[in-house]
């Protein structure tokens, strides 16, 4: 891992708090996200890691009663993603997301990948063909689907559907890609394919991934953050977190004494 170079900031949470109604789910989180690196969020169920992830693309705005406090700065333009005057739709145009369960749309394989481009008003057949192919190659699924782009996406296997969802997110060239436990519904072989893909992807995009699989965090990430009860307990380079954690709670979790 080439962590000795000085990484540039892609995003940074500053004093981030989050409330589901009255319940405080994130407590004063401060954390950097480095450009073209993979950052993993680990922690026991209910620790707030998905809540934190979903703050980046303002998914919480979809439901009433949710409230953010603090900032998530997004670089290079240094905007606060959570500011009231920032349009969540514009945020989601720049930040892609891959979900826990593959959620392809009830459309063809091609139209699934073209979806984000069409949302952005792109209807030129040549441009769409080009970008869809590029995205499918980027998600390492092109060879499997190139002869049946018109088939319904729901006919693909779970692992293929998830890679299709990655291609869908990649097609619009996001700056940051959020993964919310992307392999928890997949078998070990499909999981391996996704992990390999994440390795490839970090050359072109910054990645933030939630996982409850610590081996996965160790395998795919450059940085790891351990969260517990809505707090950011420890953040650091992945090998340091796993080899010599500074906080007792982190150590308990990664050695399996808690979690």
């Amino acid at each position: 891992m080439q962590i000795h170079d000085n990484p540039t900031l892609k995003a940074e949470a500053r004093n981030l708090n989050f409330f589901y109604g009255e319940a405080k789910a994130l407590k004063n989180i401060n954390m950097p996200i480095y450009d073209k690196k993979v950052t993993a969020l680990i922690g026991p169920s209910g620790c707030g890691k998905s809540t934190y992830l979903r703050s980046f693309n303002r998914m919480h705005d979809l439901y009433p009663g949710n409230r953010y406090e603090g900032e998530i700065r997004f670089f290079p333009d240094n905007t606060n993603l959570l500011a009231a005057e920032v349009d969540p739709i514009e945020v989601r145009m720049r930040i892609g997301m891959v979900f826990q369960k593959p959620n392809p749309f009830p459309k063809s394989i091609f139209e699934n990948v073209a979806y984000g481009l069409r949302v952005r008003g792109e209807n030129n057949k040549r441009v769409l063909d080009d970008k869809v192919e590029h995205a499918l190659k980027g998600a390492a699924i092109w060879d499997e689907v190139k002869d049946r782009l018109a088939d319904l996406a729901s006919n693909l296997s779970g692992g293929q559907q998830q890679r299709l969802c990655i291609a869908r997110a990649l097609a619009t060239d996001p700056e940051l890609l959020l993964f919310d436990e992307p392999t928890s519904a997949l078998d070990p072989i499909a999981t391996g394919a996704i992990e390999e893909l994440i390795h490839e992807l970090k050359k072109r995009v910054t990645i933030l991934i939630v996982t409850h699989n610590m081996q996965q965090a160790a395998r795919v990430s450059d940085y790891t953050a351990y969260m517990f009860l809505g707090e950011m307990v420890e953040f650091g380079k992945t090998d340091e977190i796993f080899i010599k954690p500074k906080d007792k709670r982190t150590e308990d979790y990664i050695t399996g004494r808690m979690g």
């Binding site: 693309n57 145009m93 869908r168």
Partner: peptide, 10 residues
């Protein structure tokens, strides 16, 4: 989850 997928695409 399907709606979230669509919203997440902007």
């Amino acid at each position: 989850s399907m709606r979230e997928g669509a919203y997440a695409m902007g």
